[in-house]
């Protein structure tokens, strides 16, 4: 068997999941907006040193550091590590040591490889609005802000929130399932949002 034969046999086993259905309808502006699927929103309710709070990182050995972050509107400590692939990972644990949120990222180094994310790059990506369900209630989080959206949805199942951050405004549209679209010019409308948010 040639290398190509082995490749074809092996890689042919990789498939999209059974749940994946390609949507072949036009979605217009969706590509131009930032969306948060519910499952991702749970993993992004984290903002690094937002709202002008003092930011510090303390070495805890090797390339692992601790960083003060906003999580669910409160400041807490995240552990940042860089693995052998130069990927930066963060992890936040609750008081019992259980991981409640984690993620990571890389950046192109301009030479064909990639490098770990810096704290400021983490800040850029993590300080976006996010949603999470706590005690059966859906909350919107942004830096040190926490908003209970219960009872604030319109007949279309959407809630519109304007976030003020110093000199900029962020227009956030939240669906009842926790899906979130944010723009800096206007609110995203229902016909611009994924249909699966309303099923």
């Amino acid at each position: 068997m040639t290398n190509k034969d082995k490749f074809k046999r092996a890689f042919s086993e990789l498939h999209t999941s059974d749940a994946f259905v390609l949507d072949t309808e036009e979605k217009g502006m969706i590509r131009k907006m930032k969306f948060r699927k519910t499952i991702i929103a749970v993993c992004t309710a984290l903002a690094v040193c937002a709202g002008g709070a003092a930011c510090y990182a303390a070495d805890v050995g090797g390339i692992q550091r601790t960083v003060q972050v906003w999580f669910h509107g409160d400041q807490t400590t995240a552990t940042m590590t860089v693995d052998e692939d130069n990927i930066t990972h963060y992890s936040v644990k609750d008081k019992n040591g259980n991981e409640i949120i984690s993620g990571g990222g890389v950046a192109e180094d301009g030479r064909g490889g990639y490098r770990p994310l810096t704290e400021s790059e983490m800040n850029e990506y993590l300080s976006e609005p996010s949603t999470d369900i706590m005690g059966g209630k859906l909350y919107l989080f942004y830096k040190n802000q926490k908003m209970d959206l219960t009872g604030k949805f319109d007949k279309d199942g959407l809630c519109y929130v304007t976030l003020n951050d110093r000199d900029k405004k962020i227009y956030v549209t939240v669906a009842k399932n926790g899906g979130l679209a944010s723009r800096d010019d206007k609110y995203a409308q229902k016909n611009e949002l994924p249909e699966e948010w309303f099923r």
């Binding site: 990571g104 890389v106 990639y114 983490m122």
Partner: peptide
């Protein structure tokens, strides 16, 4: 896919 690698990785590895 390269763009995704440049961006933040929100999912558990």
């Amino acid at each position: 896919s390269k763009d995704v690698l440049k961006a933040f990785w929100h999912r558990k590895r």
